[in-house]
Design a protein around this nucleic acid. Structure first.
Lengths: 112, 112
DNA sequence: CCATTAAGTTTTGTTTTGGAACTTATGGCA
DNA sequence: TGCCATAAGTTCCAAAACAAAACTTAATGG
């Protein structure tokens, strides 16, 4: 089964995962909750490739989780801000943060 | 950056995602919270391939989120049960369930 | 007029995934 | 005895996703 087929699953968890169920998408959301909004900020902070980042941002916008906003008209520049729908996932990330702190100590030196 | 490199990230969310940050892994956890424990149950319920399922279960056991338990000695059969560490992720899935119910209505007919 | 910034896009090669068949060990049953 | 079923995986191959790095576009500042 492909991930896109999950969007009509009977289970609401599966439907949620059809949108945010990969690590990069959730890292973008983390960055949003930390106040980031720009393409370059996401790219640098998360370490994902620009290729994947562009793809995930597009998807998050299509799903109404982020909104693409013109923040400079010359040259045209867009950034990404959370919608209310996107805000409502924040508690899930908070739980993952607490869980990570408790159960996933850093083994080697911390990397960016 | 590869997903395995996330396990030593400074951010606890990223470290958490290095283990549970893909849709299939989270669907296995969902099934566990629903009371399932057997390989065949996971395979049928989630629609993932046995190949991926085996790989994810191994990882979840290595990370101490599930425990592999001998439940029949002849023939030897194992199933998988949540540890306390695994239980502590349940609230995150609950939020995803609520979010999915609210924001991801089923578009076509529901599938298994 | 040349370097820089920012948001992407393209290209190429590697890795992961999906799908389906196969394996192993045992038990039931005719 | 021989044979089918069950359960937990493993193996194989083609298709899709991903990583890394270079390239594009449009404007700005020196």
């Amino acid at each position: 089964m492909k991930w896109s087929e999950l969007s009509d699953n009977w289970c609401p968890v599966a439907r949620t995962l059809s949108v945010v169920g990969d690590r990069w998408t959730l890292l973008i959301l983390r960055d949003c909750y930390l106040g980031k909004s720009k393409f370059e900020e996401f790219a640098e902070s998360s370490g994902m490739t620009r290729h994947i980042l562009a793809e995930r941002l597009k998807r998050l916008v299509e799903e109404g989780i982020l909104e693409r906003r013109l923040y400079s008209s010359a040259p045209k520049r867009y950034d990404y801000v959370l919608t209310e729908k996107g805000e409502e996932l924040r508690p899930a990330l908070r739980i993952m943060k607490d869980w990570g702190r408790k159960h996933m100590p850093v083994r080697r030196e911390a990397k960016a």
